[in-house]
């Protein structure tokens, strides 16, 4: 077992189906599709043997769910954008890694389970990412859910558990986070040609986040997660979690080469395709404003401790 996992690169990609199903309807969607294609080619040129996806469009409640069906087959249709078409899929999952990841989660105090059921509804974001980044199932994949109640400590530990499993199995891994930047969409149907970021505020924050990503400052974005949630995220869940998980999984530092391959509107939301490659000599010092948690002990009993 190696000490540090070998992470070839990390990608941050949007969950919306437009780049897969309708790139021709909008120039921006087309540019996102081209960026996906570029990433696909880079993955093919790497010698990665696992693609690990964290998808914000796969919510879970009972702990953390990890996809372990060796060959999930189905036809997925998006709840909102069903009129763009269907997404038939047949993927190749890494069962061994999925089980190892579950064990690593449990060893760190998390409740986790694998799922391997015919017809299980793989979410839009994961389907889009896998179909565009790994269309021929060249490398096996694994998907982990986003628990609706989890907060920072749990997400950090979830990321560290992913590293534990990679190290144990000696995997060379491509990390994929499926998430929007700003996630407010237009609430009416629009002409695709008229798509734009929902507001100037969302756009300004997105560009600031992209500046950080472009400079490889992943840990700094992780530290900014609560601000990002408050400023540009519709409060569907308790927190903006993808940067926490991505940083904890790839390494909590700023030593990355960052590249923003595309940034476009997706029905008003901010969609970006970003690549982070582990490097040396990145900028900025990490500042842990909050605990760097190694083991999950559950919610803190703040009230109980206050009585001491």
């Amino acid at each position: 077992m190696s000490e540090e996992p070998e992470i070839v690169l990390g990608l941050y990609v949007p969950p919306h189906p437009q780049p897969l199903l309708a790139p021709e309807q909008n120039e921006g969607w087309s540019r996102l599709r081209e960026a996906f294609d570029t990433c696909r080619q880079r993955i093919e040129e790497s010698d990665a043997d696992l693609m690990l996806i964290y998808s914000t469009t796969w919510p879970s409640i009972v702990g953390h769910q990890i996809q372990a069906h060796p060959k999930p087959v189905f036809t997925h249709v998006d709840d909102d954008f069903h009129f763009l078409g269907s997404m038939p899929y047949e993927f190749h999952m890494d069962e061994e890694y999925a089980e190892c990841y579950r064990e690593a989660c449990e060893a760190r105090g998390l409740h986790a389970r694998t799922v391997a059921y015919d017809g299980f509804p793989i979410d839009t974001g994961s389907v889009v990412a896998l179909k565009l980044l790994n269309p021929d199932n060249r490398i096996p994949a694994c998907i982990v859910s986003s628990n609706v109640y989890s907060n920072r400590a749990e997400q950090i530990v979830l990321g560290k558990a992913a590293r534990d499993a990679m190290s144990k199995l000696g995997k060379k891994v491509v990390i994929v986070v499926v998430a929007s930047l700003s996630n407010r969409m237009f609430t009416e149907h629009i002409d695709p040609a008229d798509d734009r970021i929902h507001s100037a505020k969302d756009d300004e924050w997105n560009r600031k986040i992209l500046e950080f990503f472009g400079n490889g400052r992943l840990e700094d974005i992780s530290q900014l997660s609560r601000d990002i949630q408050g400023q540009i995220r519709v409060s569907k869940v308790v927190a903006y979690k993808p940067a926490w998980w991505m940083a904890a999984t790839m390494g909590q530092h700023n030593n990355y080469d960052g590249e923003v391959l595309a940034y476009e509107a997706l029905h008003g939301a901010g969609g970006a395709v970003i690549q982070l490659t582990p490097a040396k000599g990145g900028v900025g010092d990490k500042e842990f404003d909050e605990d760097d948690v190694e083991f999950y002990h559950g919610d803190r009993s703040v009230l109980d401790k206050g009585m001491l």
Binding site: V62, D118, G119, F120
Partner: peptide, 8 residues
């Protein structure tokens, strides 16, 4: 077939 994503 409907498979519950939370309680499969």
């Amino acid at each position: 077939i409907s498979v519950d994503p939370i309680f499969p």
